[in-house]
Design a protein around this nucleic acid. Structure first.
Length: 266
DNA sequence: AATACAAGCAACCGCGGTTGT
DNA sequence: AACAACCGCGGTTGCTTGTAT
């Protein structure tokens, strides 16, 4: 893999952005969009590398960015999602409209980690610490964010999973792309958010997640389910997944009906 | 008031994945 | 199939601001 180092060319500016640079970047993106980050700074007349422009836009200049302190609900959501997803900040950000992965990462490292530790410490002082392994169940592919989707096996009769968002063929629900956030992610993220928020926190006891969690096909290889049997989440997390064989059949049937409809539309 | 330290945050860096040729 | 170009992600750095001494 050949890698073009960022800002390899001499003369490209680094460090904090000035208000003037921000203005230029905003007006250029408003006029022409950001289909090609690499070419954007040249076209806009900025002495920055494309990567720097992209970061600035995504983390700071995007109009849908929600500034200010995180609410209790948001913090709780982050903690819960982090238990589930680990350091997959973009996946977590996808569930929090208006928040960026960078912001969430910073909040996590600065105070949520401490907050969680304090909680755990006070818990372990009161009672013996143990982890309840929940009943796992299959999850709706449609309930997964795009980044989660990248791990989802292709279903028979359905279009292949797009994997990461490709610039050449934009896909919805990217955590940090304005063009998709404004069109689709708000609605879906909000829905997902509600699901998380509405959960009874007393039920949110998750297994300890380690590196193997994301490649644990063998862990569940005895599962009787054939579809998506390697995608497992703790019971109740996404809310909509099938909970029995019958539910499962109905669920997948409905999914295929929906998928068929979409295919027809296309 | 001056200094040291800690916390918060924006930005950078390097890697892996995807797409196009 | 191999390579090049590009994007997005997560880890890390370093500057700024706030607080304690």
């Amino acid at each position: 893999m050949v890698r073009a180092p960022c800002c390899e060319k001499m003369g490209l500016k680094k460090g904090p952005w000035t208000p003037e640079e921000d203005k230029i970047l905003i007006s250029h993106i408003q006029k022409y969009g950001h289909s090609n980050w690499r070419a954007l700074p040249k076209l806009a007349g900025l002495l920055r590398c494309g990567k720097s422009c992209r970061l600035r836009w995504i983390n700071y200049l995007r109009p849908d960015i929600k500034r200010g302190n995180f609410t209790e609900e948001e913090e709780e959501t982050i903690i819960k999602l982090h238990e589930m997803l680990g350091n997959r900040w973009s996946a977590i950000a996808a569930k929090l409209p208006g928040r960026t992965d960078n912001e969430i990462k910073n909040v996590w490292h600065t105070h949520l980690k401490k907050k969680l530790k304090q909680k755990q410490d006070s818990k372990s002082n009161n009672q013996e610490l143990y982890v309840t392994v929940p009943k796992c169940e299959e999850i709706s592919v449609s309930n997964l964010s795009e980044s989660e989707n990248s791990n989802v096996p292709t279903l028979p009769g359905l279009p292949e999973s797009p994997g990461r968002h490709s610039p050449m063929s934009p896909q919805p629900s990217s955590s940090s792309d304005l063009s998709t956030v404004t069109e689709t992610s708000d609605a879906t993220a909000e829905t997902d958010n509600i699901e998380v928020e509405n959960m009874d926190s007393s039920e949110m006891i998750f297994p300890v997640i380690n590196e193997d969690f994301w490649s644990e096909a063998d862990l569940f290889e005895n599962s009787s389910m054939e579809l998506a049997s390697d995608i497992m989440v703790p019971s109740g997390f996404y809310g909509n997944g099938p909970t029995s064989i019958d539910d499962d059949m109905d669920f997948w049937y409905n999914l295929f009906v929906i998928a068929g409809g979409i295919e027809e539309l296309l």
